[in-house]
């Protein structure tokens, strides 16, 4: 994955970048399977490797596929990134170790989900039970987000007659 990412950073041809991103997503999905998150893996594969790639390709078809060489100084961004990374690393120092069953994340609310969830909802897939019922409201929000994005795309890319006029006017002003 790291290789894919380095490739993404370095590559200037955007098709390559997009393909690498798709590979990156697929790799992520396999890791999700390894980490027992089958639902997530399924979704990541469908979305990250599928839909996102299609979207990117669509965009590239409509725009351009070569990135110009960046001209500005990279030091500031590197510094920001380095600081953020350092804070994260610092934060992980006290994290529970990988796969530790005793980690606080795995207690508190989880036993309820695992033991009561299937009985109360009649759904053995705990992920679905939590997603749709315990935290159903989050899912409602999620649908609203998708809905918003749909509206956004309609607004932005719809063939509105007035758009044309508007953009021409903008061109004139420039």
């Amino acid at each position: 994955m790291a290789v894919a990412v380095i490739g993404i950073v370095r590559a200037r041809n955007l098709f390559v970048v997009v393909m690498l991103t798709g590979i990156y997503s697929l790799l992520a999905a396999t890791i999700f399977v390894v980490l027992d998150a089958v639902d997530v893996a399924f979704t990541e594969a469908a979305v990250g490797a599928g839909i996102s790639t299609v979207l990117f390709l669509g965009t590239l078809a409509l725009t351009t596929s070569e990135e110009k060489k960046p001209v500005h100084n990279a030091w500031i961004s590197l510094a920001v990134v380095a600081v953020t990374g350092a804070v994260l690393i610092y934060g992980t120092l006290d994290m529970p170790r990988y796969g530790d069953p005793a980690a606080p994340a795995n207690h508190h609310v989880i036993p309820e989900y695992l033991e009561q969830g299937p009985e109360k909802t009649g759904v053995p897939n705990v992920v679905t039970a939590v997603l749709a019922s315990y935290r159903g409201y989050d899912t409602l929000g999620e649908v609203a987000v998708i809905f918003t994005a749909g509206i956004g795309v309609v607004v932005l890319l719809g063939q509105w007659r007035a758009h044309r006029r508007r953009d021409e006017r903008a061109e004139d002003e420039a």
Binding site: D138, V145, T148, A149, G152, V155, A170
Partner: peptide
């Protein structure tokens, strides 16, 4: 989640401005 709803929606609203900027 709701933060994202609001930020996507406001992004749409902003993009409706009269100037291409």
């Amino acid at each position: 989640v709701f933060l994202e709803i609001s930020s996507l929606a406001s992004c749409i609203l902003i993009s409706l401005g009269p100037h291409r900027r």
